[in-house]
Structure formats: structure tokens, C-alpha cells
């Protein structure tokens, strides 16, 4: 029997139709890039004048473009990205989790004000302070170095906020009981609070990673030297200056996109929940 609440078949068709069109618009460029990067050099682009749909499908799939990557600056950029991302995630987790723990577990003077500042710091997009920060980094002598890319991204208001939310949800009795048993606060943090917070640790890692991954303005300004350029900067430079090695450009871009989306897809649910929680409440 028909459910009076069920949408009419027409509405359902409209809904799925519209979604399909929109999802296609989103996915098609990515799919094209992926296919093109797997096709032989000569087929990557077809001239606009003799376009054909069948030309979008490679005649054979090949990894030759990816093999060619080894001779470019991509391995260097990948290494730089990995160092920067890893260091940011590890240091960022420790530093921000500690602060989140302090906001959740302790009462101290100026707590509210400090927390407001923390929240304000993540409402201000990082791009806003790139140029003055550059002036500072230059004064430190850090231009074109790993620390220029890593250190400014470690303390992160959003992550502090996330950890605070989580640690505040643990009853204070937990900590008190451990205190009575003679545990130090460092021990309580490392052995009791942090292990309980693994979902937050997972999302926070992804957020720190994506923050590094998504940043462009800062690495362009602070570390554009090829020895320190991260992937997105290296690729952007390639597309602007040497538009000859198409195969290398396609494979590196596609590889970089895949590297960013896979951790995202794996932790999507957790990540989205925390993200939205940080934004709305």
C-alpha cells in the first residue's frame, strides 16, 4: 500500500536526476584527470578542433607517466610534503591535545578569555596573516626551511577546541580517582585522557594534515625554493613554467589529489562530525 509520506515517483526522479547531474559535474574533472594520467603521452590531450568522446578513453592504460615522474622534481616535493605533514601532525597532536586538556580539566584565571582567543584564532583564516608572518619569518631567518612550513601550523585553535570538547565530556571523577591514587597530571593526560580520545586524535590528525595539504599561499611565500617546495607548490610552478612535460604534470597532479582524498575518504564520518561540531556549536 502506498505510504502517504513517500515522495511521489516524479519527485524522486527529479531528486536523483538533479543529484546525478551535480555529482557528475563534481566528479567528471577528477575522473578525466585520472584517465588522462593513465594514458600514453601522445593521447593525453586532444586538440579542441578534433574532439571526440571516444578520445577521452585511453586506447590503453599505462603507468609510463608515473614512471617518468621519478626523473622530475616530484619525488623531492613528495618528500618535503611528507616531512612537513608528518611533523605538523605529530607536534600538533601533542601541543593542541595538552591545551584542550587544560581547558577541560582545570579552572584557572583568564580561562574564558583565553578560550575566546583560541576560538577567534580559528575563525580567522590563516591566509589573512601570511604577509606579516612572512616578515616575521624572514626576521627569524627561516625563509626556505622546513620549520617555516611546520612551526606556524602546529598550534591550531580548531584542534584545541575539538580536544577540549572531548575531554570535557569525560567525567572529572576519572581524573580525581587517578589523582587520589597518586598519579601526576602528566601521567593522567598521557595514560588516561589521551587513550580515551582516539576518535578525536584520528580527526585531529586528518585536520592537521588537510590544513597543511590545503595551504598554498603560505608555502608559496615562505618556501618556494625547489629544495623545500611542497607538492602543491611544485605542481603549480610546473604548470606555469614548463608546460611541456604533460605526462609528468598529469600524473603528479593526479597522484597528489589521490594522496589527499584517500585519508579523507577513510575517516570521512568521524571527520565530518567534528568539523560540523566545531562550526555550529
Amino acid at each position: 500500500m502506498t505510504d502517504p509520506l513517500a515522495p511521489s515517483p516524479l519527485m524522486a526522479m527529479l531528486r536523483y536526476g538533479l543529484l546525478s547531474v551535480l555529482a557528475f559535474c563534481v566528479a567528471a574533472p577528477l575522473a578525466w584527470l585520472c584517465l588522462a594520467s593513465l594514458s600514453p603521452q601522445s593521447e593525453i590531450f586532444q586538440p579542441v578542433s578534433d574532439f571526440s568522446w571516444s578520445g577521452l578513453i585511453p586506447s590503453r592504460l599505462t603507468l609510463e607517466n608515473y614512471r617518468a615522474l621519478m626523473q622530475t622534481d616530484f619525488p623531492m616535493a613528495a618528500k618535503n610534503s611528507a616531512i612537513v605533514a608528518l611533523a605538523t601532525v605529530v607536534c600538533g597532536l601533542v601541543v593542541n591535545a595538552m591545551a584542550g586538556f587544560a581547558f577541560a580539566a582545570f579552572d584557572f584565571r583568564g580561562k574564558t578569555l583565553l578560550f575566546v582567543l583560541v576560538v577567534a584564532s580559528f575563525m580567522m583564516p590563516f591566509e589573512a596573516i601570511v604577509l606579516p608572518l612572512y616578515v616575521m619569518i624572514r626576521a627569524f631567518g627561516w625563509v626556505n626551511s622546513y620549520q617555516a612550513l611546520i612551526v606556524p601550523e602546529i598550534a591550531n585553535g580548531m584542534i584545541i577546541f575539538l580536544f577540549r570538547q572531548f575531554f570535557a565530556s569525560i567525567p572529572k571523577d576519572y581524573y580525581e580517582a587517578a589523582r587520589i591514587d597518586g598519579a601526576s597530571w602528566g601521567y593522567i593526560f598521557l595514560r588516561i585522557a589521551l587513550p580515551l580520545s582516539w576518535p578525536t586524535v584520528a580527526t585531529a590528525s586528518l585536520m592537521l594534515f588537510l590544513a597543511q595539504w590545503d595551504s598554498f599561499f603560505w608555502p608559496v611565500v615562505a618556501a618556494s625554493d625547489p629544495d623545500y617546495a611542497v607538492i602543491q607548490v611544485a605542481i603549480a610552478r610546473n604548470i606555469n613554467f614548463e608546460q611541456t612535460n604533460w605526462g609528468g604534470l598529469f600524473s603528479s597532479t593526479n597522484l597528489a589529489i589521490v594522496l589527499g582524498t584517500i585519508p579523507f575518504l577513510l575517516t570521512q564520518r568521524l571527520y565530518v562530525r567534528s568539523l560540523v561540531a566545531g562550526g555550529i556549536k
Partner: peptide, 23 residues
């Protein structure tokens, strides 16, 4: 509390708020 907070607050002060002053 401040021992726990120090690294993060120092980071935010130097790399988020100081640049505003510098600007």
C-alpha cells in the same frame, strides 16, 4: 594548567596574533 597550555598558547601568540600586530 599553564604548563599544559604553554606550547599551544605560545604558538598561537607568535604565529596567529603577533602577525596581526606586525601587520
Amino acid at each position: 594548567p599553564f604548563l599544559f597550555l604553554a606550547p599551544a598558547l605560545a604558538g598561537l601568540a607568535v604565529f596567529r596574533f603577533a602577525p596581526i600586530v606586525v601587520a
